[in-house]
């Protein structure tokens, strides 16, 4: 079984993002970039499926700028077999929208014919939570989003999904798209030898133009601002004072 995993280069999870004062966006220059944490979980799951003998090949794909090759190298070091970079822009400040990403991925899927696409449920930059569902829709495939458990058997994926108020288990006919949630697994730490070894793994270059996909944004970003800041309130000295303040001042009890 062949698995395709899309990965995105985003601002590192531990970086406090700064909004540019002119409203033009978030400061991305000289900021640490990493693989989207949900995508790391997706790669880890694919690697575990390969280690269990369920999967035979893992192809990772990233869409965006040339620098995303670093992200692909990380995925290769984790255990993916080969990588494809789809160059869609040279501007590091430009986010390719989920619809365009899904279209590009659908072209890659047509060429690679994977049995399963495992993707992160959302990217922590645009927080759109859409690419996996869009890809499944474009391909006419089944989808299982927000997975916390994936089992492959008899031509289908049995997926436990994290939904509001509990868990839902569904069976999806393969080929399918599965998007992963936090609790699915804990991604492995990438060792130095595996990083060295990953440098020898194949990394193919493609472009959005050659895949004939228009990546023009559908959403125009008018401005980006900081959210309203809260100001620190008061220190209370005791539980009595707290209860009193909540009753008389805040009026919430």
């Amino acid at each position: 079984m062949k698995i395709l995993v899309p990965v995105k280069r985003v601002v590192d999870y531990n970086v406090k993002v700064r909004v540019r004062t002119d409203g033009s966006g978030v400061e991305l220059a000289n900021v640490k970039m990493s693989m989207n944490p949900f995508d790391e979980i997706a790669v880890e799951e694919a690697v575990r499926l390969k280690e269990r003998g369920v999967a035979s090949e893992i192809v990772v794909v990233s869409i965006g700028v040339q620098q995303a090759k670093d992200t692909l190298r990380t995925a290769l070091a984790m255990g993916a077999d080969r990588a494809i970079l789809v160059d869609a822009t040279s501007d590091v400040n430009r986010d390719i929208e989920p619809l365009a990403v899904a279209r590009l991925l659908s072209r890659i899927v047509e060429a690679e014919r994977p049995d399963l696409v495992i993707a992160g449920k959302q990217a922590i930059d645009n927080d759109m939570n859409a690419t996996g569902q869009m890809l499944a829709g474009l391909l006419g495939w089944g989808q299982a989003t927000f997975a916390s458990k994936i089992e492959i058997a008899d031509g289908r994926a049995v997926v436990t999904r994290e939904v509001d108020g509990g868990l839902q288990t569904i069976g999806v006919k393969l080929p399918a798209v599965v998007t992963v949630d936090l609790r699915l697994n804990e991604p492995r730490y990438v060792s130095l030898p595996s990083i060295m070894k990953a440098k020898k793994k194949p990394l193919e270059d493609r472009t959005a133009a050659e895949l004939d996909v228009d990546v023009t944004p559908r959403l125009k970003i008018v401005r980006t601002v900081e959210p309203a800041q809260r100001v620190a309130g008061v220190r209370v000295a005791s539980v009595d004072e707290l209860v009193d303040k909540l009753k008389t001042q805040a009026g919430v009890l």
């Binding site: 601002v11 993002v17 909004v19 922590i124 930059d125 927080d127 959403l219 970003i221 980006t224 959210p227």
Partner: peptide, 11 residues
């Protein structure tokens, strides 16, 4: 976006 650390106005 960015977990609520920024707010975008989009058209």
């Amino acid at each position: 976006v960015y977990a609520g650390n920024a707010v975008q106005t989009v058209e």
